[in-house]
């Protein structure tokens, strides 16, 4: 197991080089004039007529190995470059924006997992009941809904109609408090900072702004998890050892919770562990719709602008998260199921 973990850790740099090289190669398909659009976003900005100077200034005409070498050298020195689309260093952008994305993914994670597993189990146990059929409709709808459509419907209903859950991260009054000298931004996670500052009003305001995106993510992802849990559970419930457990006279509750659930949860655990990572990736759309200034919105804008340091920095960051996330899931997997061996 230890050897496996070490091997996986040693593989991380290789994977990261592969990912960044791939993105770099894709960017290289664009010629310097196309890359220029990161610095000249509309015809209105072309009046200076110094385009060749711009190309040379930002090194857009350099070769792929030259650009990749410079970038790698800087990354190793802790400099991810300048994100033209955010007008700040990529590292600074990550520092400022990731806490907001993490906060959203964190809060959405629990209702997705708890709701998804509980409902999934319940539908398997009440197989072919009205509840099961209704849930299946719910799941198909959730799984079929494009996230940007469902997000917009959430805004329409909960904000435009009811006025409950506004987009953004904070209300105007709350952001004035947060920006004031009397308030400390310890972690940049808004709800946590509000509690650390003893400001329940700001905590509630930050939470109110989180609920819309949480509802969207919870519905879409719990639908996925319900499906996985339900099919896993159904499969296990048909196994011989479950029949044996029932024949031994164990209560249905014990059979379900003690004998069936544990084995049915193995595929669920695999999916759940990676869910947080997938959710982080989904924030590209969710944060754009709900106007949350997190990592997702940052990467979406960088991609629109062909801002390659921004795209690469964001990709690298998510790649690190994904690799580490996968590693943690694999370790948990082995702990949860001792039958699994890593060679």
């Amino acid at each position: 197991m230890t050897a496996y973990i070490i091997r996986r850790i040693l593989l991380i740099p290789v994977i990261l080089i592969g990912v960044t090289l791939f993105v770099f190669a894709l960017m290289q398909m664009l010629d310097p004039y196309q890359l220029l659009s990161a610095y000249v976003s509309s015809p209105a900005e072309l009046k200076g007529q110094n385009l060749e100077r711009l190309i040379s200034k930002y090194g857009l005409d350099k070769s792929l190995p030259e650009k990749y070498w410079t970038w790698t050298k800087n990354v190793l020195g802790g400099d991810l470059g300048w994100a033209e689309s955010a007008s700040m260093p990529v590292m600074e952008a990550i520092k400022r924006k990731f806490p907001l994305t993490f906060e959203l993914a964190f809060y959405a994670f629990f209702p997705i997992i708890l709701g998804g597993i509980w409902v999934g189990k319940a539908t398997a146990v009440k197989h072919n009941s009205v509840f099961d059929h209704a849930t299946r409709v719910f799941v198909i709808m959730g799984w079929s809904f494009p996230d940007f459509v469902f997000g917009l419907l959430v805004i329409l209903f909960f904000y435009s109609v009811l006025g409950w859950f506004p987009p953004g991260a904070l209300s105007n009054w709350a952001s004035q408090v947060v920006e004031s000298g009397d308030y400390s931004n310890y972690t940049r996670i808004l709800t946590l900072d509000a509690l650390l500052n003893g400001r329940l009003d700001i905590f509630w305001d930050a939470l109110r702004h989180l609920i819309g995106p949480i509802i969207t993510m919870t519905y879409l992802w719990s639908a996925f998890l319900i499906r996985i849990t339900r099919s896993g559970m159904l499969e296990v419930l048909r196994k011989d050892y479950i029949r044996t457990a029932r024949a031994k006279g164990l209560s249905e509750k014990t059979v379900i919770n003690k004998h069936a659930s544990k084995n049915a949860m193995i595929p669920v655990l695999t999916v759940s562990g990676r869910l947080l990572i997938y959710m982080l990736a989904e924030t590209v759309i969710i944060e754009t719709i709900f106007n949350r200034p997190g990592m997702g919105k940052f990467i979406a804008y960088a991609a629109q602008q062909l801002d390659y340091p921004g795209i690469l920095g964001g990709t690298l960051f998510f790649a690190v998260l994904l690799v580490l996330g996968n590693l943690i899931v694999d370790i948990l997997y082995a702990i949860y199921d001792p039958r699994i061996e890593y060679k």
Partner: peptide, 22 residues
């Protein structure tokens, strides 16, 4: 006293905030 310029790329969000008076 204050002026706040918010970046909201998505039209639906911008519209909802305008109609809500935010």
């Amino acid at each position: 006293k204050y002026v706040k310029i918010l970046t909201m790329e998505e039209w639906s969000t911008r519209k909802a905030a305008l109609l809500a008076g935010d």
